[in-house]
Design a protein around this nucleic acid. Sequence first.
DNA 1: TTAGTGAAGTGTTAAAATTACACTTTTTAA
DNA 2: TTAAAAAGTGTAATTTTAACACTTCACTAA
Lengths: 229, 229
Amino acid sequence: MTASEKAYYSIHPKFHMAVDCIIFGFEDGELSLLLLKRNFEPAKGQWSLMGGFVEEGESVDDAARRVVGQLTGLTDLYMRQVRTYGDLDRDPGERVISSAYYALVDIKKYDHSLVQAHNAFWVKLPEVPHLIFDHDQMVQDALHFMQYQASVKPVGMNLLPEEFTLSQLQALYEAIFREEMDKRNFRKKIASMDYIEKTGNIDKTLSRKGAALYRFNPERFKEIGQFKI
Amino acid sequence: MTASEKAYYSIHPKFHMAVDCIIFGFEDGELSLLLLKRNFEPAKGQWSLMGGFVEEGESVDDAARRVVGQLTGLTDLYMRQVRTYGDLDRDPGERVISSAYYALVDIKKYDHSLVQAHNAFWVKLPEVPHLIFDHDQMVQDALHFMQYQASVKPVGMNLLPEEFTLSQLQALYEAIFREEMDKRNFRKKIASMDYIEKTGNIDKTLSRKGAALYRFNPERFKEIGQFKI
DNA sequence: TTAGTGAAGTGTTAAAATTACACTTTTTAA
DNA sequence: TTAAAAAGTGTAATTTTAACACTTCACTAA
């Protein structure tokens, strides 16, 4: 790189870059968020999203994966960038630009000890408290974006165990879109999606009769490739 | 701020932060992008989006507005953040994180001398050349996002003059979604949108008969608040 | 043994939205 | 006066979506 090329960059300022993660779970017919009750500064004692700074040598996407992994012990989650927040005073301590990411977690599968160590808790969406900085806005934006994605792509299943009943699936979509759905119409729609397939197993935990378990088959989805709920 | 609070930030690295702008126009029934044929380093001679670094004391959103303003002379454009690109080597010169924004411009209204000074050109979407870095990806993502927004919000009109004919409007949506639409069905749909109102003026430039001119009324849209095309 | 419980599972009809489709009107330039 | 060229207009068929209630099953407890 020539001197002038170097100057092209170096005359411009640099910024702290962070990621904040909106971690969605699903339990008891409600979406939940995994939130920190901060036992560290800044904003100790307040509620916030799990976040962290982008470090040298990692992409912003990787930082988000790392941060979620640090809290949940989980890798390979379904994660998407929501947007980037770059207002001057969004962090009152110092200027920090932050990219928000949402993650979808099977709430049965996270590392409890890590969550406990971070003083983090699952909070049902209607009970989410006020969060620090612009995290309330991030949650709003993430929810909307997630709702949109869930309406056009079969991503909701990432919030359920690998095998799930149709009642669970319906309850999930009712929670995501905050609207009741008709059982027969819902099941008709799912039946038309050949990539949601019966596993042959039966779940007996919720009813004497037992409910057929289904799974999402990503390969078959790739062939067909359309979803709308 | 205490010393420990300061350390909380300062132990972390800082990054150059840029914005890159996908500037859409509409002409001759096609979407166009305003692109730079770079007459400066780095990547001199290649095509790129208009971009710039975020400076101290300006938000990322403001940086995007400034950068589009520098090229077009226009402020108050409809602009939305697309997403942020944070891969390690996305800029081969040095690590730069960049937020992409798209802007919708009335192609009749920009400052020609500024565009000329930047060696920028309107290029019809199907003829857009390969761009530097990850700008091809940015264009893809911006187009998809813009298409989505245009399908659920009345934002397409930002690409047209204040007053427009229904033929222009239909051609615009056909260009955005790359699909032909039925004239009668289209006009039926628009007629049901009370916030797209006849101005009483007539455009005579395209036909002997003349075509009624319409305008978008944002106040009336706010009252009604739904759009789908 | 059988009656009660509680979730799982299953079709049809009405209403609404979308799509397909072709001719008439208007103006002016030749 | 007529040819040209875009503007403007309505109906019927199809598809999609929404509304709606009872039966089945397997177990538990009387």
